[in-house]
Amino acid sequence: MKAFIVLVAVAVCAQALTDEQKEKIKNYHKECSAVSGVSQDVITKARKGEFIEDPKFKEHLFCFSKKAGFQNEAGDFQEEVIRKKLNAELNDLDATNKLIAKCAVKKDSPQQTAFETIKCYYENTPTHVSLA
């Protein structure tokens, strides 16, 4: 779930990611930045824990979430994908399930859902990844 990068973060120990996974994350970030038109300043702030209510940033996060397999086109969570990827980082199924229950909550739009979920993961995990 860390793959949520910059996103932010999502989470957990950077050393646990392989070079291939890091490259995928960078590519997702670049592709989603190009599609959303989000300001790099907004992304930089998010990496530091300052999540700005910006429609382009929310679109960026939703794009990233879809590419990572965490949400589908309709914005629905893909819980088994999230559980598998997050537990690989946390290595604690109980903690993983608690984090999913707390953070994977559907909101008014897929973009708002991605934004609030990533923000929640950022606030509730000890280590964050910043790759781009």
Rank of each mutant, 00 (worst) to 15 (best):
residue 99 L to H: 01
residue 86 L to I: 04
residue 14 A to F: 10
residue 117 T to A: 10
residue 17 L to G: 10
residue 88 A to T: 13
residue 87 N to C: 03
residue 7 L to Y: 03
residue 78 Q to E: 08
residue 106 K to V: 02
residue 69 G to Q: 02
residue 131 L to Q: 01
residue 122 Y to C: 00
residue 3 A to L: 06
residue 102 K to D: 06
residue 46 A to P: 02
residue 90 L to Q: 00
residue 57 F to S: 01
residue 114 A to F: 02
residue 51 F to Q: 01
residue 54 D to A: 13
residue 130 S to H: 12
residue 62 F to K: 00
residue 42 V to Y: 04
residue 58 K to L: 13
residue 67 K to H: 12
residue 129 V to M: 04
residue 81 V to W: 03
residue 85 K to N: 06
residue 5 I to Q: 07
residue 115 F to C: 06
residue 127 T to N: 15
residue 17 L to T: 05
residue 120 C to F: 01
residue 87 N to Q: 10
residue 73 E to V: 13
residue 53 E to N: 06
residue 55 P to Q: 11
residue 84 K to Q: 05
residue 67 K to I: 12
residue 129 V to K: 00
residue 31 E to P: 03
residue 103 C to A: 14
residue 29 H to I: 05
residue 123 E to Y: 05
residue 86 L to F: 07
residue 46 A to V: 07
residue 92 D to T: 07
residue 113 T to G: 10
residue 23 E to F: 05
residue 69 G to V: 14
residue 11 A to T: 00
residue 91 N to D: 04
residue 75 G to P: 02
residue 33 S to Q: 12
residue 93 L to D: 12
residue 35 V to F: 12
residue 81 V to F: 07
residue 14 A to S: 15
residue 85 K to I: 10
residue 92 D to M: 15
residue 58 K to W: 06
residue 7 L to A: 05
residue 100 I to V: 06
residue 106 K to F: 11
residue 30 K to L: 09
residue 40 Q to V: 07
residue 95 A to Q: 14
residue 14 A to G: 13
residue 12 V to D: 00
residue 48 K to P: 09
residue 37 G to H: 07
residue 39 S to H: 07
residue 107 K to M: 07
residue 43 I to S: 02
residue 113 T to V: 13
residue 37 G to I: 04
residue 75 G to C: 14
residue 101 A to L: 11
residue 113 T to E: 03
residue 15 Q to N: 14
residue 19 D to P: 09
residue 68 A to G: 09
residue 103 C to Q: 01
residue 86 L to W: 01
residue 79 E to Y: 05
